[in-house]
Design a protein around this nucleic acid. Structure first.
Lengths: 198, 198
DNA sequence: TGGGATAGAATGAACATTCGTTCTAATAAA
DNA sequence: TTTATTAGAACGAATGTTCATTCTATCCCA
């Protein structure tokens, strides 16, 4: 009985997660277009029929994955927003979080930052307009309002403050940095902050 | 005679260029994987056989295109390096050039920056290790040496100084900026420079 | 100059393969 | 029994590539 239940009941969620986890691995290693549904089938052991029972189609898998990951990241940003008071600490915490994520889950970072979502999810809003990035923008906006960041165009300020850090993340994901990005956190953060400080 | 020569001799180059130009358009609009060789055939009017006569295969088209564009950009960077003396002017000229290119040939910028080359050109070095980016790195290195940029890790300095500008280019290509990037040049450049100034 | 030989460029039908998706049957759960 | 889930064979469309053939321009020799 127990054995049966353990095998079956949690299966719904397990299978869905199993498919998404595997898809993330395959997508970020081989890319979306070079990953076939049959690959996912082989890697998960879940049958084709079952995959299509859980997701409308291949794009549906990519979309669900995207929503999950962007949702998680949005939550992290909201948490930082809530737990830190001043702009400088908030934004440094954002950088630190992104750097750690890059090291602990490069696949996640790769999929969020690097995959050309619009290429296979035509209706998706560009990543930079999604909630996590909107939250960062809001942090910057408040920073300008409070005078912690000098008066300037909001978009330029956001790009400037995150640009260097994101650049480093790309370099790390591309295998160009030999040390973990986290190693460079303090140094790059000083640059980021100086670029917009009053 | 002359007529004949004009019609025939340049044809080799014309067809090759026609294929590359069209491929660039299609690749940057629909993406590499959503562009079939048959699409290129239809758009150019050049027969399939002829396409395969000029290029080894589809990947060969992408690679030739990449080499051409990266070569051109490398030349531009070398020109700037040669024509400007001090680091600040050099790097601002680099930003200005990239911004102008983004406005005049967004396709080129899109292909160079955004396409996941490693996904379909497995042997290609990551863009950030290619010659144009190496030249930028060398500019920064000299800047640090001469004390125009403060003492710091070279990679971090490069990422910091170009990060914000590149970020803006991405935003523009994604259709998030309503105004041309060139409009923001002075403002973002001030940020970039402040981030690494002594 | 004229005419055949040669090289290489262009053609597009045909091919094998892969892919996303559907369908029907079997199984498990309620 | 009824409903939800799993299974995997089958399908059709699309793709990258090949190849036998035709066309065109240049070269060579009479």
């Amino acid at each position: 009985m127990k054995l049966k239940k353990e095998k079956s009941t949690p299966r719904n969620k397990d299978i869905r997660s199993l498919i998404l986890d595997t898809a993330l691995d395959l997508f970020s290693i081989r890319g979306y277009f070079s990953t076939s549904v049959h690959h996912i089938q082989k890697q998960t052991g879940v049958s084709i029929g079952s995959i299509y029972h859980h997701f409308k189609n291949k794009e549906g898998i990519a979309k669900a994955l995207y929503d999950d990951l962007v949702g998680q990241m949005g939550q992290s940003m909201a948490d930082i927003m809530a737990s830190e008071e001043n702009t400088r600490n908030r934004l440094k915490a954002v950088c630190a979080h992104l750097f750690e994520l890059t090291e602990t889950s490069p696949n996640v970072m790769q999929y969020i930052l690097y995959a050309r979502h619009r290429e296979f999810m035509p209706d998706e809003t560009p990543i930079c307009s999604s909630r996590p990035f909107e939250t960062i923008r809001e942090m910057v906006r408040q920073g300008i309002e409070k005078g912690e960041i000098r008066q300037m165009d909001l978009t330029v300020a956001s790009a400037s403050i995150m640009g260097g850090a994101i650049r480093l993340i790309y370099l790390r994901l591309d295998g160009v940095l030999e040390k973990p990005v986290t190693f460079y956190l303090d140094e790059i953060w000083e640059c980021c902050w100086k670029s917009v400080a009053p």
